[in-house]
Design a protein around this nucleic acid. Structure first.
Length: 889
DNA sequence: AAACTCACG
DNA sequence: ACGTACGTGAGTTTC
């Protein structure tokens, strides 16, 4: 028997929209609903393998049936903008996939679907009708199956209804379902229904009387008086509702089943559209369809020394750029293999302009050392491009990044919002090429396992890395240039890769015994507090569990504070701090938490990263943050305690090596200074020229008080406002920060803006720019897209506004310190100093300084950091030195 | 894997 | 009316 699948377009799109978290492509187009729709579509197609397929749409609501009863229209909420823009996108996708669509002015999708379903039934087909709402249940029969997808926790399950299933679940036949609905009404569909009759009463009535006709014939038999009267008084309404609820299964439609016949959906056109929408999971469906055969034909594995020599010779002679990839497992430093070198090394891939690519396997005479030597030679005189160059420097020789180009880094600059960046992604987005991800090819196998198990697949993979790097480089350069970020790339990000590589390699020396002792010193107090808390609570429980803690505090002990999070009570510090003065147990919990954090995250956490050289080699990531900052992982050395004295003590275990001291330099209020510069606000610029405590000046100017009479409270408030401005001010946020009312906060903000009108102007302009262009930029051209601004959700939109205000400031600060790092690193090298830059903490640089170089290092830091950008205010530096990190801050 | 909490700038 | 300050990473519990 032939089979047709009919889909209710708007209804499924709507379901998908609310069931799939927000997604946007890099052009800022929302795509979650289309994505969800396609997932449902593919699932259905896989299950049903139909012969025919049609998607029906309403032309626009409200239509035909609703027009009859105008008074009730307009209860439907307007479609959110994020959803509206996805309707044409979906139609584009379906068109590209060659899927038949039906829509007709004056007809609702329901009518089209109903009509087609009945038509197909008559032709002797099986019918699957997919819709998000239950209206369609009325046309279920023994061959017409209604399918209702439900998204439960990310998984889509589909409920199926044949006529019998409707009867089972709703106790009425599909035909009676119409009248059931007429009685109870449906606000979403503008069906009035009979007052006083809800779902329960309606079901009872239909079970008892079977039809509306019969109900009114025997209306006096209705038991409940109020219901009986309502039925009698609203007879007309009931029949009108029936008209509204009934799907027209005999609509005038030109339809030929042949047009709806299913064929290959994975067309070129569809591929292009999927790529535009950035559905990379779905793109894998095209792999069979689109062939990379002609590219792969140029790939080759090389295992012998003479052949390797030949390939390297080719690289050295190549006039143009060469793509390469180092095939090694990513460094795993976090397990107990302390200071562990890298994982397995499989070899090196090289790609040439001709399209010829070679995977040179590390085997026999072709040793790792040989390859390293050859790559060093090649890198010292050839233009090279790759992905993740920081991870390749171990195999390159020269620290002059001029000849290098990192396509991953370029992809990050073009869209810094993504979670990860892979060569396969770059191929998809920038070359329109489909290549499988590593995991897809080899699963969880290590590289060496993959090589031995699937050598041909591996060769293909390795060569693709080099091929894509080479082919994508000019494309990315062009895109960066268009976006005004080529200089940022060449002058800041690329040179920085080598600085970060050096910092990682250098690491920072720690005192392992001291760190251990610090942790052990905490243990006593922790168990003391643990026992005390159990006693105060009257029971033992897991203090680390917010769930259990919340129940103890707010249920068992009935402390005031109520709910806050989705899952239960909030036990966050700011909530507990309000209770602490009145309840010893809360104060104890807070102290316990503080100590437990220090012990687990820092004392024990850091210990696991100490290498055989007694140094910790963190990883500095350059493609993580949305604003341009770098991040530090494994371990994170950018969040070592500082604010509280006890935590700060941990810094005493970070020490310079023998013969060295630490020199630490940090920018003084770099973000506020950048704000002063970017806004050009005269008053704020002058404030900085006064060369005094900026928060006190702000207080003095905003509150119109002589500088010397500013109280500590006023200074504190002004400081909070300054912070707030940088974060993208909102009265609510400020009120939280200062524990004052929203109204008071709003007054502060108003006064601040009255004092510094240039700042207000600048922030407004940032938001306006972001709305118009879809992104904001830093002083050095770095972009951050702000797709949230086009959201119809108040919260998301407000977030977008704050992002638009904050990112240029935070991002410019990130640019500035990156420049400083490059310059400092260069100077140290140029002046042949042995001192090393080892850490960056956003506005701070730490140098392990040879004692005899201390003065020079201070001078270099001072000069290069303050010179990193020429602003209309000075960039001031605070310099410290010490015999450990604690002393040097 | 997600939620919560908390460390830093 | 809505319910948040901006940017990160890691440890723990819980599903």
């Amino acid at each position: 028997m032939e089979k047709i699948v009919l889909i209710d377009g708007h209804s499924i799109l709507n379901r998908a929209f609310y069931g799939v978290p927000d997604l946007t492509n890099s052009a800022g187009l929302h795509t979650n609903a289309v994505y969800g729709f396609l997932n449902i579509l593919f699932k259905i197609l896989e299950e049903e393998s139909p012969d025919y397929l049609t998607v029906a749409f309403d032309v626009k609501a409200p239509t035909f049936r609703h027009e009859i009863y105008k008074e009730y229209k307009g209860t439907r909420k307007p479609m959110p903008e994020e959803l509206r823009q996805q309707v044409p996108a979906l139609k584009e996708v379906l068109t590209a996939m060659g899927i038949k669509m039906m829509e007709k002015a004056g007809l609702e999708a329901d009518d089209i679907l109903g009509t087609l379903a009945k038509k197909a039934e008559k032709e002797g087909m099986e019918v699957s009708l997919v819709s998000g709402d239950r209206d369609l249940l009325q046309i279920a029969t023994d061959v017409i199956k209604i399918r209702i997808p439900k998204t439960k926790g990310g998984k889509t399950e589909i409920e199926d209804y044949y006529a019998a299933d409707v009867k089972e679940k709703y106790q009425v036949t599909p035909t009676a379902f119409i009248e059931l609905k007429a009685l109870m009404g449906d606000t979403a569909d503008n069906i009035p229904g009979v007052p006083k009759v809800g779902e329960k009463t309606a079901t009872e009535l239909m079970v008892q009387f079977g039809t509306l006709e019969n109900l009114y014939t025997h209306v006096d038999e209705v038991g409940k008086k109020s219901v009986r009267e309502s039925l009698i008084n609203n007879k007309e309404l009931a029949y009108l509702s029936k008209t509204l609820a009934e799907i027209n299964v005999d609509s005038p439609l030109d339809f030929s089943f042949e047009e709806a016949r299913v064929h290959d959906f994975y067309t070129e056109e569809a591929y292009v559209v999927f790529k535009k929408l950035e559905f990379k999971n779905l793109l894998s469906r095209f792999e069979k369809g689109i062939s990379n055969d002609s590219i792969i034909a140029g790939f080759q594995m090389v295992s012998g020394l003479p052949e390797a020599e030949e390939v390297f010779g080719k690289a050295l002679e190549s006039g143009g750029e060469v793509g390469f990839a180092i095939l090694k497992d990513s460094t795993i430093k976090n397990n107990s293999s302390k200071g562990g070198k890298t994982g397995g090394f499989a070899g090196i891939a090289l790609g040439f302009d001709s399209g010829r690519c070679f995977f040179i396997q590390c085997t026999g005479l072709v040793t790792e050392e040989y390859l390293r030597g050859k790559m060093a030679e090649v890198s010292s005189c050839t233009k090279l491009c790759c992905g993740d160059i920081k991870g390749a420097y171990d195999y390159l020789m020269c620290d002059d990044t001029q000849r290098f180009f990192d396509v991953i880094l370029a992809a990050y600059l073009l869209n810094p919002l993504k979670n990860d960046y892979t060569i396969a992604d770059v191929a998809n987005e920038h070359l329109g090429l489909m290549i499988p991800e590593q995991a897809q090819r080899f699963g969880k196998a290590s590289l060496l396992e993959a090589l031995s198990q699937k050598p041909e697949e591996f060769t293909q993979y390795a060569c693709f890395l080099a091929y894509v790097a080479l082919k994508a480089a000019p494309v990315l350069r062009e895109k960066l240039d268009e976006a005004g970020m080529l200089t940022l790339m060449n002058e800041i990000e690329m040179p920085l890769t080598y600085v970060l590589y050096d910092m990682e390699k250098e690491g920072i020396l720690v005192k392992p015994q001291e760190l251990k002792a610090y942790g052990e010193a905490l243990t006593g107090r922790i168990s003391e507090l643990e026992q005390k808390i159990y006693k105060e609570a009257g029971t033992e429980f897991n203090i680390n569990s917010p769930k259990q803690l919340g129940e103890i505090l707010f249920d068992k002990l009935a402390l005031p504070g109520g709910k806050k999070t989705k899952t239960g009570y909030s036990t966050a510090a700011d909530v507990l701090e309000k209770l602490a003065p009145d309840h010893i147990i809360v104060a104890d919990v807070l102290e316990y938490r503080g100590l437990a954090k220090l012990k687990s995250t820092y004392a024990e956490g850091l210990s696991a990263y100490i290498g055989e050289d007694n140094r910790i080699h963190s990883t500095f990531n350059q493609t993580i943050t949305a604003t341009g900052r770098i991040s530090s992982t494994d371990p994170n050395l950018q969040n070592i305690p500082m604010r509280m004295e006890l935590g700060r003590q941990i810094r005493k275990v970070f020490i310079p090596k023998e013969g060295c001291i630490f020199t630490d330099a940090d920018y003084s209020q770099i973000e506020l200074r950048i704000l002063a510069h970017m806004s050009g606000d005269g008053q704020l610029i002058d404030a900085y020229r006064m060369h005094a405590d900026i928060h006190r000046i702000t207080a003095s100017q905003v509150f119109h008080i002589p500088f010397d009479e500013v109280t500590d409270l006023q200074r504190r408030n002004a400081k909070a406002v300054n912070f707030g401005i940088v974060y993208g001010i909102s009265s609510f946020g400020l009120s939280q920060g200062l524990s004052i009312t929203k109204k008071e906060a709003a007054e502060y903000i108003e006064k601040y803006f009255a004092t510094y009108p240039g700042v207000k102007n600048f922030l407004d302009k940032s938001v306006k720019d972001a709305r118009e262009k879809g992104y904001v930029t830093t002083l050095f051209g770095r972009r951050r897209p702000v797709p949230e601004l086009s959201s119809s959700n108040f919260m998301q939109r407000s977030f977008g506004e704050r992002v638009a205000m904050n990112s240029p400031i935070q991002g410019t600060a990130a640019d500035v310190i990156k420049i400083a790092m490059i310059k400092v690193h260069q100077r140290l090298k140029k002046e042949k100093l042995a001192s090393k830059l080892i850490l960056q903490v956003h506005d701070e640089l730490l140098i392990e300084t040879k004692k005899e170089e201390a003065d020079k290092v201070q001078l270099i830091l001072e000069e290069e950091m303050s010179r990193a950008a020429q602003l209309s205010v000075r960039l001031e530096i605070d310099l410290h030195e010490g015999n450990d990190w604690y002393e040097a801050k």
